[in-house]
Each structure stands twice: as structure tokens, then as C-alpha cells.
Simulated scan of single mutants.
Amino acid sequence: MDIVNKLKKELLKQAFTEEQKQTERLNECKHIASIYAQTENAIAVLSDMKANISYIYYGGVAEKLGLAERNTAKTIQSIWEEEIFSRIHPDDLQEKHLQELRFFHFLKSVPEKKRPDYYLIHNMRMRDHSGRYVHILHRMFYIASHSNGSVWLSLCLYNFSMDTSLSCTILNSADGQTLELEKQNCNDLLSDREKEILQLINKGKMSKDIAQTLSISINTVNRHRQNILEKLQVNNSIEACRIAKELHLL
């Protein structure tokens, strides 16, 4: 799934610096994740974007789903918890990654100190131990950033959902404000010229036609096309237009 590659690249390509008390802060966040798992019976996943490592803590939800025994934990060498992802309904998994990409870019516009106030919440379907899909509430927090603005630690929580009508929403836990994620876009992913070219591609225009329309060379058009594919992490123009529409770039 191309959106997966895009999200992973956005998270892992960030520039990280050596920070004072980094180990202390990591241990604090690991403790927070373990407490969530114990008190809410949640599956809590703390992901370290700098080290590309995840710390997973299992509560009663994990036992019910057949993933692990409650009050256990493990560490994996990836920010991608494939064992959990493999249980999520394919349609919901694609939506999850897309919304997380939107959320990541939304937080880039938020002052570092206020980022932990915001979290993403939405419903999804996951298979239990019998293969039956059950409703799960997923919450995602970016709970620590580096001084240069790079997002460092994320916390994902999985609980059984009591209200399946909840739509994908950003909540500010400090003031109760809610934001509709569909209205948050990723405009900074592409330059204005790249969006202009992609709009013409979406209309079926070839590079030669685009060059004439914009009064630029074909080489320039092709360079922009290649940049678009790389930024959206897709293999062709059809996929680029599809992902761009999902991200409200078209």
C-alpha cells in the first residue's frame, strides 16, 4: 500500500538531535503506556521514530483478541506493528494510515509544547481469535518531540468500542475542542506548480500538452511528474491522482 510507504517515510526521515534526559523521558513514556494497558485493559503501543522501535503493552483487549496474554509486553524493531495491523480490516487499515498521515501534518502546524494535547480518535474493525470482526476504538497521541520540531514518540491505544458511530476526529484534551480530520489537508506535500501539473494529469493531459499549457519545457514537466510520484510514494500517475484526492490535494 503506497500510503503506508508515504507515512513511514514521513515519520522516519525526520532529523533527530541528541537531547538531554532523552532516556529519562523515554522511560516515563514507557511507564505511561504500561499504565494505560493495565488500567484500561488496552493494547498500548509506544513507537520511537528515532530508533525505529516499538514497545507494546498488552491488556485484556489483547487476550480477548487472541494476540497475547494480558499484563505482558514485548519490544519490536519497527514502528510498524504488523501483528496488530494484520488483524485490522483491510479497508479500515488503509483509512487508518491515511488519517494518521493527515494528523501528522496537522501537528506540524501546532507549537511543540501543545502537540501532546491533541489526539486522533476513530473506530475500526479487528478480527478476534475466532476470526470475527469486532469494533475497536483507536486513539493516537504524539507525546514527545525533539527541540528541532521532529516528532519523536507516538502512543497508540486500542480498546473495545462502545460507540461505533464515532467518526475520525482530532480532539484537544486540554479544552475539549474537536476538529474534523476531513477538513485538515496536506497542502504542503506538493508545491503549487506540482498541484497544477497534477490537476492537468488528472484531466488526462500528456506531458507535451501540459508543457504547452504552462509554457514550460517537457523536461521540466517530467521532472515535476517524477517529484510528484516520489512525494506521494506511488508508482504511476493514476495512483498519484487517487492518493492526491484522498489527501484533498485535488
Rank of each mutant, 00 (worst) to 15 (best):
residue 1 M to F: 07
residue 1 M to A: 10
residue 3 I to H: 08
residue 3 I to R: 03
residue 8 K to Y: 06
residue 11 L to Q: 12
residue 11 L to E: 09
residue 12 L to C: 11
residue 16 F to G: 01
residue 17 T to R: 06
residue 19 E to D: 12
residue 21 K to C: 05
residue 22 Q to L: 12
residue 22 Q to S: 13
residue 26 L to R: 08
residue 26 L to A: 12
residue 29 C to V: 13
residue 29 C to H: 14
residue 30 K to D: 01
residue 32 I to M: 01
residue 34 S to V: 13
residue 34 S to T: 15
residue 35 I to L: 06
residue 35 I to W: 10
residue 40 E to I: 11
residue 42 A to H: 05
residue 43 I to P: 00
residue 44 A to K: 03
residue 45 V to M: 01
residue 46 L to S: 05
residue 53 I to L: 13
residue 53 I to P: 09
residue 54 S to E: 03
residue 55 Y to A: 05
residue 56 I to M: 03
residue 56 I to C: 10
residue 56 I to D: 03
residue 60 G to R: 01
residue 61 V to T: 09
residue 64 K to G: 03
residue 65 L to Q: 04
residue 67 L to P: 06
residue 71 N to K: 10
residue 73 A to C: 11
residue 77 Q to R: 12
residue 80 W to S: 10
residue 81 E to W: 09
residue 83 E to M: 08
residue 83 E to W: 01
residue 85 F to D: 05
residue 85 F to W: 08
residue 86 S to I: 01
residue 90 P to R: 06
residue 93 L to N: 02
residue 99 Q to T: 09
residue 99 Q to P: 04
residue 100 E to P: 00
residue 100 E to G: 07
residue 102 R to H: 00
residue 102 R to S: 01
residue 105 H to V: 11
residue 106 F to V: 12
residue 106 F to N: 05
residue 108 K to D: 00
residue 110 V to Q: 08
residue 114 K to R: 13
residue 115 R to S: 10
residue 118 Y to T: 01
residue 118 Y to N: 09
residue 118 Y to L: 05
residue 119 Y to W: 08
residue 119 Y to G: 02
residue 120 L to W: 06
residue 122 H to F: 03
residue 123 N to M: 06
residue 123 N to Y: 01
residue 124 M to W: 02
residue 127 R to S: 09
residue 130 S to P: 04
residue 131 G to N: 03
residue 132 R to C: 11
residue 132 R to Q: 07
residue 133 Y to E: 04
residue 134 V to Y: 02
residue 134 V to W: 05
residue 135 H to V: 14
residue 135 H to S: 12
residue 135 H to I: 13
residue 136 I to M: 01
residue 137 L to G: 03
residue 138 H to L: 05
residue 142 Y to M: 04
residue 148 N to V: 03
residue 153 L to N: 00
residue 157 L to V: 13
residue 158 Y to K: 01
residue 158 Y to I: 06
residue 158 Y to D: 04
residue 159 N to T: 13
residue 160 F to E: 05
residue 162 M to G: 11
residue 162 M to H: 11
residue 166 L to S: 07
residue 167 S to P: 01
residue 171 L to Q: 06
residue 172 N to I: 00
residue 174 A to T: 07
residue 177 Q to F: 07
residue 178 T to Y: 13
residue 178 T to K: 14
residue 179 L to D: 10
residue 181 L to F: 00
residue 182 E to L: 07
residue 183 K to A: 11
residue 183 K to D: 12
residue 185 N to Q: 14
residue 186 C to F: 00
residue 192 D to Y: 09
residue 193 R to N: 14
residue 193 R to G: 13
residue 199 Q to V: 09
residue 201 I to L: 14
residue 202 N to V: 06
residue 207 S to D: 08
residue 208 K to H: 09
residue 210 I to A: 02
residue 212 Q to M: 14
residue 212 Q to K: 15
residue 213 T to S: 12
residue 216 I to S: 02
residue 220 T to N: 12
residue 222 N to E: 13
residue 224 H to I: 08
residue 225 R to K: 15
residue 226 Q to K: 15
residue 227 N to T: 06
residue 227 N to C: 12
residue 228 I to Q: 01
residue 229 L to W: 07
residue 230 E to T: 06
residue 232 L to Q: 07
residue 232 L to N: 08
residue 236 N to R: 11
residue 238 I to L: 14
residue 238 I to H: 15
residue 239 E to F: 02
residue 241 C to A: 14
residue 244 A to H: 12
residue 246 E to Q: 15
residue 247 L to A: 05
residue 247 L to D: 03
residue 248 H to N: 14
residue 248 H to L: 05
residue 249 L to R: 03
